[in-house]
Amino acid sequence: MNLFEILSIIFCLCGGFFFLGGTVGLIRFPDTYSRLHALTKADNLGLGFIVLGLIMVSSSMPEIVKLILIWLLALIGSSSACYFIGNHMHQSNKPQSIQDESDF
C-alpha cells in the first residue's frame, strides 16, 4: 500500500466523519436555521474530503477534473438551496424568527 492509498483512506474517513456530524446535527438541532447550517457546512466538507480522497487514487486527469467539478457543483447547489430554504422560512414566519433572534 503506497502513500497515496493511505492518504485516500484517511481523507475518505474524514469525509465520512463530517457526513456523520452533519446527519447528527440535522437530527438533533432544534430549529430549521441551525439544521441548515449543520447540513450544508458538514456536507460540503464531507464531500470535499471524499473527493480529495478519490483524487489521490484516480488515474487520469479528466477523472480528477470531473471529481472537482462534482464538488464545486454540489457546493453551488447546496449553498443556494440553503439560502432558498432559509429565505422561505424567514419570509413565512417573520415574528417567529425575530423571537428566535431575541433569544440569543
Binding site: 457543483l73 453551488i76 447547489g77 443556494s80 439560502y83 432558498f84 429565505n87
Partner: peptide, 10 residues
Amino acid sequence: PVGRWIIKIL
C-alpha cells in the same frame, strides 16, 4: 438575486 445567479451558473 441568488435565483438568477444560480441559473447563470448552472
